[in-house]
Amino acid sequence: MPRNATKPEVSSPASADGGAASMAEPMLPAPYRIQRQRREAHDTFTLDLAAADGGRPPRFAPGQFNMLYLFGVGEVAISISGNPGTPETLQHTTRAVGSVTKAMEKLRAGDVIGVRGPFGTHWPTDHARGKDVVFVAGGIGLAPLRPAMYEILRNRAHYNKAVLLYGTRTPSDILFKRELKQWGGNFDVDVYVTVDRATGTWRGNVGVVTQLIRRSPFDPGNCVAMICGPEVMMKYAVDEFRRRGVDSQDIFLSMERNMKCAIGFCGHCQWGPNFVCKDGPVFRHTDIEHLLNVWEI
């Protein structure tokens, strides 16, 4: 069993066409055309992208990210939110919170953006075989987890229980509502959603998502936890899993840091000795436990 979150055996755009995997190619975006822009919540949208030259997007592993470039505006690191089983459409789900993502929100079908990637480590869907899988997502953190859920549902028989614990601020912030219903209905996933503040007709759970870990149905001795959300939420989620007896080796989380190059050159994403862009974003808890509680590291 490798100690670190494993590097995926997927080809980068550079090596896919046989070229040298030098820095120039991974730094150079490829044009992608927007096929569809879908609103997920008041500030969140999904872009469906296809390679502008009609080629197939490079394969990706759940949890990896791309760098998306908007002409003349800038570039942002966004995790892939689509289905690794249908790689012809590349999906990214983004909150419009910065100058680039706010401008991207205005894009429509037919517009072209630059894409480079995929980069980084992936969720341990192999390591989770034969075990219960517990996803914990906070807000937009569901987007990087969705490809792992797709992969597990595609091979549902290889996994025991699948549990999704999902928290948002309000009911109107809940993403992928149709899929949450499907997963809970047809695919034998235990889906629990909670909100910080109940509004409108909400009759479900109210409270932080980490509280759900205590009472959700999984086997602490034979499970894998995959956590993605705000850093403080992930810390508390880890505490809850540890309290239930889940081994540090079986807990994985996805980190966010400033990224400019995505291949370990620019230095921005350093977190202790790690470059989050290439040693992460998905880390095994054992490897980064000593960094999680250090202020401003």
């Binding site: 730094m27 150079l28 975006p29 490829a30 044009p31 502008a52 470039y69 002409f71 037919g110 072209v112 953006i113 630059g114």
Partner: peptide, 13 residues
């Protein structure tokens, strides 16, 4: 690092 050009809905780098 690179230059991009935009022409009639096409983008190249």
């Amino acid at each position: 690092l690179w230059q991009a050009s935009r022409d009639n809905g096409r983008l190249s780098f």
